[in-house]
Amino acid sequence: MIEMRNINKVYRSELVETRALRELSQQVGAGEFVAITGPSGSGKTTLLNIVGLLETFDSGSLHFDGEDVSRLSDDARSRLRNEKIGFIFQSFNLIPDLSIYDNVDVPLCYRGMKAGERHRRITSALELVGLGSRMRHLPSQLSGGQQQRAAIARAIAGDPKLLLADEPTGNLDSVMAGQVLDLLQQINQSGTAIVMVTHDPHLAARAQRSVHVVDGQIAPEESGTLRAPAALAMPEARARETR
């Protein structure tokens, strides 16, 4: 479904150039559940952003369902995100002024769906994540775990083919994290591909496959899950900056 080839991504600020991704190639098949691990600053979020069409890249190619997305206009990319991709963020990113129900409604609105259809999808998504009784609550009235489940409902309400999650459990305790992962697995089983960034090797182990990123490159696979805790101990250190 997703095919990345030789992708390079350089961040340029006034003084420094950061090579966030270098010659990175990776494929994600339909219905796959991939975990991405790696030390802090290694380029995981960058990778996810590029797959999710939130950011552009400097060279290489990216195909989504066989379509070359690097040429798409901003609006077409928005449409693709809206219809095929769901996002779950580490900090939930719920809109504070909107109720849980309205938050889930946001992506559906942009799709121009009929009101009845939207309502059906919103309720079923919220039922699925176990928030059926809290639809009218504001985000600030929920616990962190509930907020993240609301965010998951928002991500899946549009029936995406691909779900991208950047450290979805980063702000949660281990019990909550387990629940969220149960949910993701459940969603995956119904056919949605998931790419999840995580620092937790136990969680990464629950994915079908795990990819380890170091210095903007994919590291050899077998060592991925084992080395992760060590990497955690030395945050930022690996981020290589070149002039």
């Binding site: 939930f92 719920l94 504070p96 985000p139 600030s140 962190g144 907020q147």
Partner: peptide, 13 residues
């Protein structure tokens, strides 16, 4: 501003 409950805004987001 003074009346804002400190907890709520620390918790969310």
């Amino acid at each position: 501003a003074a009346r804002l409950p400190p907890a709520v805004y620390l918790k969310s987001q």
